[in-house]
Computed example of a mutant assay.
Amino acid sequence: MTDLPELETDPEAVADRRDEVAGAIRDHASGLARALARVQGGDYGRRAFTTDAGEWTLKYEAGDVEFLLFEPRSGEPVYVVSTKQPPEPDALALAARDYAAFVRAFDAWVDSLAGALDDAPTAFPEPTDTSDIVAERERVLARIREVCTTMVGELDRYEGDQYGTFTARVNGSRWELKRDGAQVSYLRVGGSDGIYLLSQYGPPSVPDLKELAPDVAAFVDAYNEHVTELTETAEELEV
């Protein structure tokens, strides 16, 4: 049997050295990613840095490096750090030779931000207190809820169903009072995408309440007319 030539270079040694270099860059780039995330803010982001040999893009996610891409001025781009397979040894070697230049570009960018906030003001006017506005809103809403609770109580008495609604059109808008037994479920103005004056989700805005509160009386009048019609109908019943 003819003797086969032996490999002059051990592939395992090449792979081990590739993993060693890639791991060292990843560990270092992780620190850069954390620093970039702190400066830019947020859990996700990226930034590109230019060197004489090409462009580097550092992308971070959840404060750690997601990928580090090197795009040389000539040749194919290489993901020096990524969540996929490690780069080819020759591509990694090309990127590794420029990695120090990338770090210097990163440092230069950070240095350029020094003093950027020196003149930024930190003294601001005191926010106006809203407690009186909120208290007034609660007072108006409490009265609206009181009236509507009386209405749904009466509706529950004669309709007999556990759930129901009373609707009326006021100044061109559809008002809907929904009840759950004798309790108010909601008072909504303007259909399914409208404004909830009463609901389980929270109060309306003060501007919305200011606009719609004057129409509550007309809505109650519409209810009273509805009850009057029912009363007249009942009086006409014969047994």
Rank of each mutant, 00 (worst) to 15 (best):
A37I: 05
R38N: 08
R38K: 14
R38E: 14
Q40D: 04
Q40K: 13
G41N: 10
G41V: 02
G42N: 11
D43G: 02
D43I: 01
D43P: 01
Y44I: 08
Y44A: 15
G45A: 05
G45L: 01
G45T: 03
R46D: 13
R47N: 08
R47D: 13
A48L: 09
T51A: 15
T51C: 05
D52H: 02
A53R: 13
A53K: 12
G54V: 11
G54W: 03
E55C: 04
E55I: 07
A62H: 14
A62R: 15
A62K: 07
D64V: 03
E66N: 09
E66T: 00
L68W: 06
L69P: 04
P72A: 07
R73S: 11
S74M: 00
G75V: 01
G75M: 00
G75H: 03
P77R: 07
Y79W: 10
Y79F: 09
S82D: 10
S82G: 10
T83N: 07
Q85S: 09
P86S: 05
P87E: 13
E88P: 05
P89L: 06
D90K: 10
A91T: 11
L92E: 08
L92C: 10
A96G: 05
A96F: 09
R97H: 04
D98I: 02
Y99C: 11
Y99T: 08
A100N: 12
A100P: 01
A101L: 02
F102W: 00
F102P: 04
V103Y: 00
A105N: 06
A105Q: 03
A105Y: 05
F106L: 14
D107M: 06
A108C: 01
A108Q: 03
V110E: 10
S112G: 15
L113D: 01
A114W: 06
G115L: 05
G115Y: 13
A116S: 15
A116L: 12
D118L: 04
D119P: 01
A120C: 06
T122D: 12
T122W: 10
A123I: 11
P125E: 12
P125I: 13
P127H: 09
P127I: 13
T128A: 12
D132H: 03
I133Y: 01
A135P: 04
A135R: 08
E136D: 14
R137D: 13
R139T: 04
V140S: 00
R145N: 06
R145V: 09
E146T: 12
V147Q: 15
C148V: 09
C148D: 05
C148T: 13
C148K: 02
T149W: 05
T150I: 03
T150L: 11
M151H: 01
M151F: 04
G153M: 09
G153Y: 02
E154H: 06
E154V: 00
D156G: 14
D156K: 05
D156P: 00
R157W: 14
Y158I: 08
E159Y: 07
G160S: 12
D161N: 11
D161H: 09
